[in-house]
Design a protein around this nucleic acid. Structure first.
Lengths: 205, 205, 205, 205
DNA sequence: CCTTAATCGAGACGGTACGTCGTGTCTTTAT
DNA sequence: ATAAAGACACGACGTACCGTCTCGATTAAGG
């Protein structure tokens, strides 16, 4: 376990981090439904009151823990491979990355309880984006950057693309996450090569 | 409320129906998280043991209640308008129909708690389909019928369509349900005219 | 401990008795302040909810436990020794008896926490008497019987005794309980021989 | 309320007095069980740590607050009316006085919760006396002074009075306080005229 | 028509977790 | 050095809901 003993009394961020880590570990080992405010607190070497001072209930706590585990850096660094197709593939993979890097045990633990997994994954957009205020645009912002570069290369005519098409790769990715609970590289390739790129080509004529 | 008074003691299907109706009403009025086995039982004028004899837990009960409220007939009667585009639009509308016909109060009640709504809607495919065993195919079965008729009319070349493209309209519909919590006719039109039909056309060359 | 295992599920009075016994044992071993609803429940092999269904809080529970442990039978069988002095002594001893027979450990456990002890003992009149409605009279009823017999023997002139004198032995007994936390036979003798009997004699002239 | 604003920072006795006053007010308004270290501290415009530096726990704090509110001067000035009977009556009244002068709101607040009232009143002897070490004698010290003066007047033969008789008036007064929660002048008269004085007379022969 | 087995209505039970509150300690900052 | 402010560790509170079980009343079905 991760308890700490008689050192100096932890507080603030140090304590908060310990709690979120403990939450994540509990989640991984015992799953969402077996995770208790009590168990998370005990594992973190503290007590429920401290948790409730920060998060109103279990799902808030788990959200926070997930948000911390999912490094959001890769949202910002937009791939630049020189081709639209590869940029989109790279971008989608980067989006899936954090879900994979939560750690195999954690994922396995969460996967044990599909309906929870679905809820969490469904909430993942909000989880990731909550910090940015313009929720709508942020989602497609990276896609827009990618598409604009492609337009400069003459690969795409942006004005002919509806917002729905632009958000299509991400939408299908999310749907895949929700439905399949796992995303393979071939699935990403199918989405990009079988659906997105044909639409791009169709929009050029 | 729906309690029944000192008449003859209900049992079997009559009782079961009363329970599921009560469950639906509780769901609509108080939401999923405030629905308890106790509250459903009380409202139905019976007790928990009777419920547990039929359903193992709350989600089973709610599933059953939803399944009863969602008339499944429209899954089977596949539209036949004479054009692929209209068939698909009609089919998608038919799929959304039950969600709308759950009744305005119920919907409103469920919408109060978005994450529950998402969970339920995400589970709706299983809810609707559970009776059929071949889950994978059933989903696209109707689409296949529609597409085959279109192929006979020369509108589409089926062998050039990947499974992912075939299920695309439904996938996007589900994603729309989950994300937007409401589906407009224009959204359906956008999906069909802006995404699906272009892909069909692209696959003809 | 007193837990019971996988027998048939206890309920009603059997369960209640088990709880009160467990409460008494906890009280004796760990004292009032260390007694918890939880600990009492656990020791009785049940859970808090069952306790709270019967008693609103800890003090109610303890009151009930004490009331059960203090056999009230001896209140009724009035001593008849043939002399007023001995009757009163016997009566006072009988009143103190239950307090002693709660069991030495129990007493010792309670004595550990004087302020609790005082509270409890102060409440003892109600504990003992709650069942009788005419609280005032019941207290002195036994004394009246004793005094009437003494009057027949010519030992006392009842009409010259004020209510306050009649209840004096019991009052002093209670005060002794509260103050000294223990009652010796000599204390009873002092009360009767040094205070009550002189007043009786004084009232004869 | 009694909070103090951004003046100079209080300390020492000024602070202490503010705390005890706040405690008394909380006690009066909300009763003993609703009084918390936190509420007392907040009302005094300070914080718990300051209280705990002075008193170990709630009951210590309340004791201190009561001790401050009960003017103890009248314990020392022993009445001297010229007759034993009147001296004792006056003494008993003086003993009851502080309980009455705690202030009407305070009393009313305390009376709301009878068992607390009993606890407090039962503890009152210690409250009042704690400063003197010889607990036993202090109680009867004043009575002894009164009785000695009476002996000089020939009203009583001290050597024939047992300690129990000497402390009798106070004992009955305390019992009255505990039992009746209020003491009338007639009650005092009954104790003195109906019980104590007859014993004195009886001890003269 | 009468008996019998099954199910219902009602509610207590054993259990887990909830979210809150109070105590007493400790840390930090300011005076 | 102590006050002010407030977080922390701990433990108990009283409640809610779960899923099981007991008990007596009722009812459908079979002899």
């Amino acid at each position: 376990m991760d308890e700490q003993k008689k050192g100096t009394r932890r507080r603030g961020e140090i304590l908060e981090e310990a709690i979120l880590n403990a939450t994540m570990d509990e989640l991984a080992e015992n799953g969402y439904s077996h995770l208790t405010m009590e168990s998370a607190a005990t594992r973190a070497g503290t007590n429920k009151a401290v948790l409730y001072r920060r998060w109103a209930n279990k799902s808030e706590l788990v959200m926070a823990a997930l948000r911390k585990w999912i490094p959001t850096t890769n949202i910002d660094n937009i791939p630049d491979t020189g081709s639209l197709r590869d940029d989109v593939v790279a971008y989608l993979r980067a989006r899936v990355e954090p879900v994979k890097t939560i750690g195999p045990q954690t994922i396995r633990g969460l996967l044990m309880e599909p309906q929870v997994w679905r809820t969490l994954v469904a909430a993942m957009p909000q989880i990731i984006q909550r910090r940015s205020e313009n929720k709508e645009n942020k989602m497609t912002a990276a896609m827009m950057v990618i598409l604009k570069k492609a337009e400069l290369r003459g690969e795409v005519r942006l004005e002919k693309l509806s917002p729905r098409v632009i958000s299509l790769p991400l939408d299908l990715l999310h749907h895949e996450l929700i439905t399949k609970q796992e995303i393979t590289d071939t699935a990403i390739a199918e989405i990009v090569d079988g659906i997105f790129m044909p639409l791009i080509h169709a929009a050029r004529q």
